[in-house]
Design a protein around this nucleic acid. Structure first.
Lengths: 140, 140
DNA sequence: AAGATACCCTACTGATTTGGTAGGATATTA
DNA sequence: TAATATCCTACCAAATCAGTAGGGTATCTT
């Protein structure tokens, strides 16, 4: 399951997508409208900024905004930043790979299955973007 | 990611599938061969028994064994028992559903995506069984 | 019946992760 | 230079995870 933090992140991003190209949005505005604890949201947005998803401006008229066009950022990328690995096993993870000390990866039934799950999942999450969070729809 | 516990469970089950219809297997045997902490494994096997996946026999000649034919138990069922929900959001979970207080589920981009991920994942995990874990696998 | 065998069961504990908060530092604008 | 708003580190409580302890209970052998 996605962590609370990850779900907050997606709610905030949904809001920012809706305000795309309308100038920076205050953290406090997002927190209020999306009912997210202010200081916690602050940390989340900062993390998304460091990862290159968001950009920010300080001082009056400042705030956060989406860096690239929303269609350029995949949902998979966001999940990895705020929630960690997408795969169900370390030994099938593309971005968080760890060698499996329990099995011969070339000959492990579970490994094969989880590779399949990973591919099926990524096929969706890599091809959906921030745009798909809003696109005509209302809120999360 | 699957918890340590879940990965232990799958390793133990793999062993039990290999020994299927060769009589009960000692916890201590599984623990030793699969390098799983004995007392922890004890709890895991007990949980799988209570959930109806395994059966056991006490006393000399006793041990654990798979209750039904391995092809009758899906990987999805095992994951739910030892690891919890398969879905990425409570509001798309079939077995651990919780109403989403953040969004209108009928009109939420993230909800739709995660429903897709759930279906793609279950399409694999519901149709693979304990048999697919075994070393000398039957062909699909 | 007695003893040995092997699972059954509850409770506990330490380490890690999760879900935040606190409080000030830094950059920008007016 | 005052106000604004993000930046940043550290901290904290609660929950979960990973595993242990210690005896209870059922079964088998002799």
């Amino acid at each position: 399951m996605l962590s609370n933090k990850a779900q907050y992140a997606f709610r905030a991003l949904t809001y920012l997508v809706d305000k795309y190209e309308q100038g920076p949005v205050l953290i406090s505005d997002i927190a209020k409208k999306k009912k997210i604890p202010l200081k916690f949201l602050e940390n989340i947005l900062l993390e998304l900024k460091r990862a290159g998803i968001l950009e920010s401006k300080k001082g009056k008229g400042g705030g956060y905004y989406i860096k690239q066009h929303p269609s350029k950022t995949s949902i998979a990328a966001v999940v990895r930043i705020v929630n960690g690995p997408i795969s169900m096993l370390p030994c099938v993870s593309l971005y968080f790979y760890e060698h499996c000390q329990n099995c011969d990866e070339k000959n492990c039934g579970l490994h094969d299955m989880m590779e399949g799950v990973r591919d099926a999942t990524l096929n969706i999450l890599e091809n959906r973007t921030l745009n798909d969070l809003a696109s005509g729809k209302e809120t999360l």
